[in-house]
């Protein structure tokens, strides 16, 4: 068959559109479709090919090797699109590129909890790395960039000759992008695209659905996802020492940064400044399978505290909490339950 040109692509697109319209449409659509198909045998042929494609698509990937989470992840983790100019360009030899993606090998460095969790090459060239609860790892990518992955985190990486794409799907990671002006280094989170050249930055996906980007060295550009219709559609440039918080509405807010805090997790220290007890507990639980910390009651959950803790020692939080008179701590099996001491008089608390 002859190579497809722009016209072919247009007809193929129309054919696919008609398939969908026929499935849902009424009399008008049917008549319009008939008119369309009568314009040229090419239209008919493309329509039948689309039907054949549909028929064959039903049975694709029986082993379910195609990972639909690496590309998109969770509901709010939407990836950017390269629109149709790629569609028109001839899909030349990307075979070589694929070998490069596949060669994106990792060196595991810090595996605190020695669990057999490694990387997983997904079918479409994305390689996923996961850390278990309590585990941290450093990965060196084949371009020389290093990614330090915090506990209970997940990242997908795909390197090719044109770009270096990473997706932070869960948790937190520190990125040291190797300088390479020809290949942008971009990290996608559900809410934003973070682009860097030769720099060091930290991205943290918070339990409340926020993303926090902190620059330790160099500069990065943070752009909110277009579907968020953010009031800052062009994004913001961040300098070293700056930090930006993006909420689920796409609102972006610069924050004062504690450089030590941003990277403290690498020493397995948890630094909190006026965070809710709920998020402090959630952070501890990301490091420790057991005991899990449970905070009961909205007032206790929303109370804000600050402090520096040893991530591997939930008891350090217990001791801290006990210095706050209002809270009680109870050990239940492998859970630590924190709640207000006397729920009956909560109305008198601040």
């Amino acid at each position: 068959m002859k190579p497809m040109n722009e016209d072919d692509v247009r007809i193929a697109t129309e054919a696919a559109r008609w398939q969908h319209a026929l499935a849902r449409g009424g009399v008008t659509e049917r008549a319009q479709f008939c008119a369309w198909v009568k314009i040229s045998p090419r239209h008919l042929q493309e329509f039948l090919l689309m039907e054949a494609l549909d028929a064959a698509s039903e049975g694709i990937d029986p082993q379910r090797r195609i990972d639909t989470t690496a590309g998109v992840g969770t509901a709010d983790n939407i990836v950017p699109l390269v629109e149709s100019d790629q569609m028109r360009s001839a899909p030349s030899s990307t075979r070589g590129n694929r070998r490069i993606y596949a060669a994106a090998a990792a060196i595991a460095v810090i595996a605190v909890v020695a669990l057999a969790i490694g990387s997983q090459v997904s079918w479409d060239g994305w390689r996923q790395y996961t850390t278990a609860i309590g585990e941290q790892r450093a990965l060196e990518l084949n371009d020389g960039s290093v990614v330090q992955l915090n506990t209970k985190s997940r990242i997908a990486v795909r390197l090719n000759v044109r770009e270096r794409e990473l997706r932070l799907l869960e948790g937190e990671a520190l990125f040291k992008a190797a300088p390479d002006a020809t290949r942008p280094f971009r990290v996608f989170t559900g809410l934003a695209f973070v682009r860097a050249v030769g720099t060091q930055f930290n991205i943290s996906l918070r339990s409340g659905g926020e993303t926090v980007v902190t620059v330790l060295e160099g500069r990065v550009h943070v752009e909110p996802h277009p579907l968020l219709h953010s009031p800052h559609p062009d994004g913001e440039m961040l300098e070293a020492g700056e930090s930006l918080r993006i909420d689920s509405e796409g609102a972006m807010k610069r924050e004062a940064t504690d450089m030590a805090q941003a990277a403290a997790w690498r020493q397995r220290r948890l630094v909190f400044r006026e965070e809710t007890l709920a998020s402090i507990a959630a952070e501890f639980n990301r490091y420790n399978r057991s005991p899990q910390i449970v905070v009961e009651g909205n007032e206790a959950r929303n109370a804000r505290y600050g402090g520096t803790f040893d991530a591997d020692d939930p008891e350090s939080l217990v001791q801290f909490v006990q210095t706050k008179g209002r809270l009680s701590v109870e050990h239940k099996d492998d859970r630590i339950v924190i709640r207000l001491q006397r729920p009956a008089i909560t109305h008198s608390a601040e």
Partner: peptide
């Protein structure tokens, strides 16, 4: 979905 199909169609027979 329409774009994906057209794209597959283009890639499928244009090699």
């Amino acid at each position: 979905l329409v774009q994906a199909k057209a794209w597959i169609r283009a890639l499928h027979w244009d090699r």
